[in-house]
Design a protein around this nucleic acid. Structure first.
Lengths: 211, 211
DNA sequence: TGTTTTCTAGGGTGATAACCCTAAAAATGG
DNA sequence: CCATTTTTAGGGTTATCACCCTAGAAAACA
């Protein structure tokens, strides 16, 4: 892997673990096994690093937001694909959501988009839920879908923080991710047909093993 | 209000808004309208401030955890009381949950207790849910109560962060708190009897007006 | 091979922030 | 009124950290 990419990957991991403001550039260089000067060779300053990361994040988000129910018969697979993407996005980039207070006043492209991202994500979930209802997988009053979507997004977004705050373990590995997905399923599993439930389970566990 | 208390209150508010590590003692003194030296007169150092705050927090938590269903006929009022306390606790002290990475290496009394607090809180919610089932207010399979309790706690804990991240508003006033409570109600309102639902609504809105 | 790119070691700077110190002014309270 | 507590202004000290600079080594590459 090229040094520049290694820096970005390591920075992502350190920022997620210890937050942006608490990772010094010296730490980062040490963790990458390079001289600190080499950081400045690849990135103008710490903020440039943040911007490179948030560019990657924004790209991923757009791709994930484009994942929509395609065919009536494949809603559940499509949903599982979207969840896989969302969960990987949250696991790898959660510091971007979380550490806004560390970035300072700078008008970031990211800060402008975040509200829209949440809005679009909620709309995306509602679209999937409607599709599940239409396909006969989900039995729920249409009026309840918006609030359910909100609950789903919150659980997926914060279950990792919840595990961490409650001291489950600092290792936010695939186990934690899997349990976030399980937890979000509890929000609507009771309203799924038995068939749909087993199908969803299968599709999700397929996709979460190679994570 | 005594200066010492004003410092604590202002510190709480600033820490909640901008996180512990991003509030300088100079900022704090300015916001209190006192000289910085006066901070050191009242508190040995920044960490002592943190400890005073977390002592207050731990006290409140113990009181809140002691709020349990008393009488079968009063489960809903008791629940509303507990929610009122929990929500005020979260609004006023959320930085203590959130900013763990900022505290440094010191083995805080708080860091040791947090996992237990979450465990006890989950148990508390399960107790209330069981009581609601027993009193005939809530119609839900017992097996689903633990997962429901988890979802309730997560929504209550993180709805404020969610609003903030999604840029709703930086002012985390009573409006935001009320909407967190509403959101958590969506998790089980559908399984309440109509009577219980209106009773709970009334009890909660009573208590959230004087917040 | 020679040239360009990448990288290192290490000293240096400027800003920021926690925290100290002192001498004196207010406020408080008995 | 006197003694004690509280508070102020302002000038340190020390540590940390982002970031700069330079001279040269090692890689990459052509």
């Amino acid at each position: 892997m090229k040094t520049r990419d290694r820096i970005l990957k390591t920075a992502r991991e350190l920022f997620n673990a210890r937050r942006f403001g608490n990772v010094t550039t010296a730490d980062l260089a040490a963790e990458c096994g390079i001289a600190e000067g080499n950081l400045w060779y690849h990135f103008k300053n710490k903020r440039a690093l943040l911007e490179a990361l948030s560019d990657g994040f924004l790209d991923e988000v757009e791709h994930r937001l484009a994942l929509l129910p395609s065919d009536e018969t494949r809603v559940l697979e499509d949903y599982a694909n979207m969840i896989e993407a969302l969960v990987s996005e949250i696991r790898r980039y959660r510091f971007l959501y979380r550490d806004q207070a560390d970035y300072g006043e700078h008008t970031d492209q990211l800060l402008e988009r975040l509200p829209g991202i949440y809005r679009d994500t909620l709309a995306q979930f509602q679209t999937f839920l409607h599709a599940m209802v239409k396909a006969g997988h989900l039995d729920m009053n249409r009026e309840r879908l918006p609030e359910l979507a909100t609950n789903m997004v919150i659980i997926l977004r914060y279950h990792l923080e919840f595990l961490r705050e409650s001291g489950a373990d600092s290792d936010i590995g695939s186990g934690a991710v899997a349990s976030a997905v399980q937890q979000h399923l509890t929000l609507f599993r009771h309203a799924l047909t038995p068939d749909a439930a087993t199908q969803l389970d299968a599709a999700l566990s397929d996709r979460l093993l190679n994570a």
